[in-house]
Design a protein around this nucleic acid. Sequence first.
DNA 1: GCACATCGTGATCATATGATCGACGAAAAC
DNA 2: GTTTTCGTCGATCATATGATCACGATGTGC
Lengths: 316, 316
Amino acid sequence: MNEANDELAFEPHEEELLSRVAWHYYHDGLTQSEIGERLNLSRIKVSRMLDRGRRMGLIHVHINSSYGGCFALEARLQEIYGLDEARVIPAQETGNINDRLAEAASQYLMGRLKDQEMLAVGWGATVMGTLQRLARTLSYRDISLVSLTGGVSAYIEGVASGRSSQNVHLIPAPLVVSQESIAEAIRAERHVVEVMSMARTANYALVGIGAVADEATLIASGYASRSQFEIFRRQGAVGDIIGIFYDQNGVPLDLPFHKMLVGLDFDALSAIPQVIAAAGGSKKVDAILAAARGGRIDVLITDEPTAQAIIEKDQA
Amino acid sequence: MNEANDELAFEPHEEELLSRVAWHYYHDGLTQSEIGERLNLSRIKVSRMLDRGRRMGLIHVHINSSYGGCFALEARLQEIYGLDEARVIPAQETGNINDRLAEAASQYLMGRLKDQEMLAVGWGATVMGTLQRLARTLSYRDISLVSLTGGVSAYIEGVASGRSSQNVHLIPAPLVVSQESIAEAIRAERHVVEVMSMARTANYALVGIGAVADEATLIASGYASRSQFEIFRRQGAVGDIIGIFYDQNGVPLDLPFHKMLVGLDFDALSAIPQVIAAAGGSKKVDAILAAARGGRIDVLITDEPTAQAIIEKDQA
DNA sequence: GCACATCGTGATCATATGATCGACGAAAAC
DNA sequence: GTTTTCGTCGATCATATGATCACGATGTGC
């Protein structure tokens, strides 16, 4: 106070002045002009000092929240895999991870869906949870739903109840049938063809990512067996999206199983403007990593430990 | 004055949005309009969210402490009084000095508190302000709070609201009672004994330093009278920490008042690994000087003119 | 039912901020 | 010695920001 305000003929240490300025600016809420008057500096100089302080890392902004650490991961995921967007939710011991992912996915979609758009949906527990949370938004915004594969009717119908049915278009078939010929026949059905071509026009696709593990929903729901999974794994499968298994680079494998699926293929899926995947958990790390690598998805919604593991694994 | 009526808790996903906005603004350097476009918010709403985030302590600006503050004074204070650390904030005529000290104290503690540690807190306006700013960090890092004395419930409860109460341990009594026998009885209460012994295990103690002046918070809040203060002063008191008055060498006096306190004594306080005091203002120079001389504190957070005055006075 | 307070919202506008540019001076190169 | 180069400075101006206002939705009490 004594000499500090008087002529600063010789600079008191640069850093000291700088942090003094920063303190006044960020903690006291003074404007740059006020600081300038007080310390006999031109306003513009104060501005430059603050800029330098920020660039030099002297001024550090901390976000005091469990979300804070997630954003850095999001940025890296987006950058590494060229995603349109990544969402990472904070680690949390308690609570079902699928519920939390579904919550995040529905939030994301709510912010993104515009009136009268069309959402194509795939298969899986997280997708179901997301749709349940979205139900209101869907009818309110007059969003059409269309299925990417067979086998979704079971859970979509619950969501769609109370809505005018004309906005919900389901492929009236199971996800997988027992023979290639049957699958071909179903795919040739007029109604099936119609729904599938409608799905190609959707604005967004919402899909889950499955791990090649015994806990997979595909096994639990009887669409595949453990021994089949074992074979897939030997062939290099690390995960699946809408029933299609892919290798560690996200390239779809050539499996007989795929011929028995009723649903869109990867080319058709990729043609949808934005493919949104919600998945997490340690079992799914490889599956998500491969899908991201292969460019199978545009938006990834996952959780913090999984995101961390994906990035670490990728760099190894 | 700061009103404590700010909500401390966010709506579930409001915190995410707020954090995201803050991240884009401070880390990515996006403008508020850009953030608005990206997240489908009006520019003005983004502005308000940032404001709210700052007020509620979600966003914290940290000025790298190795340069921060007033170098020379900090170094001298540390050296003269053997402090672990001194923080001196720049002079500022306008603005409430307690708020600015509280800001500095909370910043110091944020950088220091580790997960699951325990913070013991004393009495006073600055302590209260610090706790308000720390509230988010405390719950986020799972910090336990414990009181060093009675009489803190009034303001701690505001801070602790929304947190699981098991992490906050208050001495359920006033700071001072009217008779020694009552104080003894209270100190013997099982619950009081428990809390006090817990306080002894804290990692840090955060205390204010009171001057022996008519403006003292002790007088304002009715715990002591002016005439009592006059008597204390005649006995050589220059200041108090957690209600205990000491002379110009920081040695506690033998006052009847002390026998009526409900709280830890100086020996117990000193046993806590780091005692952090935040205090400033011309009235408190003697009190702070004596506390520093007597080794009552390990960390001092004060303001520039006060630090200057302390050093000058000591050399006289 | 109505009036009323309260809150959240976006529009408007004054102010704060930072990008750009030319001027100046010091140090280095010629 | 001159010239060049570089960096710093402040003036100017476009833009970003936040204060204020007015409106509409919501809830409350009479």
